[in-house]
Nucleic acid binder design. Structure first.
Lengths: 339, 339
DNA sequence: ACTTAGCACTCTAGCTACAGGAGTGCTAAT
DNA sequence: ATTAGCACTCCTGTAGCTAGAGTGCTAAGT
């Protein structure tokens, strides 16, 4: 791979990303001042095809980058844009709010990213499975209705209004919540179910209904309910590679399956430094083999707890997306410092 | 409109709903035992076209129902299926939970309806604008973080974790929340903003930050944030009339605009008894002129507070959808009785 | 007077043939 | 090593054609 080949490959991919049309040697020679003739470019392109970086849709069409071509482009060729202070400022502003709910930040992030990139965006929140119980508290709302507030050691607070088990008074419940918190503080949420069978007190039977409710809710919660937020799915419709409805169906169908998305992103990315790119068939999920996924992580207290990611056609604006995710994930981590 | 015309029109629409293909006289005569020849049907169909119930895509194609045809079908012709006890039971079961959050019921409803009908479903929750303040309460979560719980007279409870204004102690806040609740109970949520300027106490200045936060949140809330829930949007992709991506874009683009959806449904339906059907160009929103919308209302304490609705191609399974919505809205009202 | 068989007519969808254009690969000259 | 030139390939768009489905009308039948 000499410099000229790299130059040609880079330029070709740039052009293809912009145009979505196979790029021919002529276009390349004329449109960009490469200082070499189309014939030379043709020779180089033949080499690049042999090396597996380019493909031809058919004999007499221009070339299109292969997965491997995109990979090389992302790793070696593309020019990352400058991070302007302006954008950082805008992102920071969007996170400036008194709200202290992770869910809120996640929604905000997903929406912002899909707006900034014009691709669908997915944000995965902190795994409840890792979280340990912090405290359970109750608040009486109306007679017969109760607000159950559960906090975890990772700073998440979730709450849910439930009906009060009839045989319990509110005072008893308050005491019970205290006891329960004291007894089980620090236990991983997803182990609670087993522990609960261990009798907490002699009248465990009495509280049965409440625990049932609590556990049902928590296990539902654990199953990535609300952990994955999808924003701007319709952005995908803008790109000509998705003019075919069945493709749209495949991709959006996958994105709607929270558990599958969570698994994909969770599996691929754990290190906090790098932005991770999955290109086409590199993915383990065949539903998105026409797509690329760019993922960044964010942290709470130095721990990677979730992913921010963008999905789009393989012909994606990698440079722009990666820089955007870099900024957003950093600012998100900063905003969540307190958690 | 004699009985035979009605019979033909009904059968034709049934067939078209099932097949999505223009229906010819031959098909109609052969496939359904109408006891008359295709020539007779042709004559009748010509009449029906003149009357505006049918249309021809082009001269030598079969007929397709016009908006007016569908309207007549829905109002006069179609056969409503029996309500089986089985389905009622399933719906009732889905609402059986200790959860007491309207948002939860709304999500549940939307998902269930889109599953049952295989069309996208939209559920609009109770308008916050009508709601009056019930009570504001606070709960300390961690040092510096506060859970703000606002309940309305209509039984809605919303809460949000916010950071504690630094200059206020938790005790002061508790007192403040009480004062505030006492002072403003019964005031419509969307009037609070104006009232708040009225000094509550001499040190209103001091609490400024908190009120700002509270009001900012409430006005955001008021703006139909989370009031409209969309489920199963991808169902639309199943139907051949949406094989064209631009149509999908138009329709789903509209459905994503919560405010527009809310307005449409709110404007059309207020009476509690009937199920309302909007067919094609009957809609005020041109983005959904290829669609029909079926809407039912649900109640809390005898008051209509929201809508459950289904959107799909004009060639919709009206009978099935209407019956489903009837059951679901009734059961939803029943489940929300307490609110 | 209504119904229906028959038939000519219309329009579409799908096929084939063909020309133009874009792009390639190869060869030979620079 | 580069490049101009050229033959070749393949797609795309257009035009013409056919088969099929469906109609409207007419005339005969009930």
């Amino acid at each position: 791979m000499d410099a000229r080949k790299r130059r040609i490959l880079g330029t070709l991919i740039d052009d293809y990303i912009a145009s979505a049309e196979p790029v021919g040697s002529r276009t390349l020679a004329k449109k960009y001042g490469l200082g070499i003739s189309s014939a030379t470019i043709r020779n180089e392109m033949a080499d690049l095809e042999e090396l597996g970086f380019l493909e031809q849709p058919h004999t007499s069409a221009g070339r299109v980058p292969s997965d491997r071509g995109y990979r090389y482009y992302v790793d070696e060729l593309m020019q990352r844009p400058m991070v302007t202070h302006d954008i950082v400022h805008r992102v920071r502003l969007a996170f400036q709010a008194p709200v202290r709910e992770i869910a809120w930040f996640i929604h905000q992030t997903a929406r912002m990213v899909s707006d900034m990139t014009a691709y669908p965006s997915v944000v995965v929140g902190p795994p409840v499975s890792d979280a340990r119980l912090g405290e359970i508290r109750v608040m009486q709302l109306q007679p017969g209705t109760l607000l159950l507030v559960v906090s975890t050691d990772s700073g998440m607070v979730e709450n849910r209004a439930v009906s009060l088990p009839e045989e319990l008074s509110f005072e008893e419940l308050g005491w019970l919540a205290k006891e329960f918190s004291r007894e089980f503080r620090g236990i991983p949420i997803n182990e609670l179910k087993d522990r609960i069978l261990d009798p907490l007190s002699s009248d465990v039977e009495r509280y049965h209904g409440l625990w049932e409710t609590l556990l049902a809710w928590m296990s539902e919660w654990r199953l990535s309910e609300d952990r994955v937020t999808l924003a701007g799915p319709l952005n995908i419709l803008k790109y000509p590679e998705f003019r075919d409805v069945s493709k749209v169906q495949r991709v959006l169908g996958f994105l709607e399956r929270d558990d599958a998305v969570e698994q994909l992103l969770h599996n691929t990315v754990q290190d906090s430094e790098h932005i991770h790119v999955i290109i086409g068939q590199e993915s383990t999920v065949d539903a998105i083999w026409d797509c690329s996924v760019v993922t960044a992580t964010y942290q709470v207290r130095g721990q990677v707890v979730g992913q921010v990611s963008v999905i789009g056609p393989k012909r994606m604006q990698y440079a722009h997306v990666m820089t955007t995710l870099e900024i957003v994930s950093e600012e998100l981590s900063r905003a969540l410092k307190w958690a």
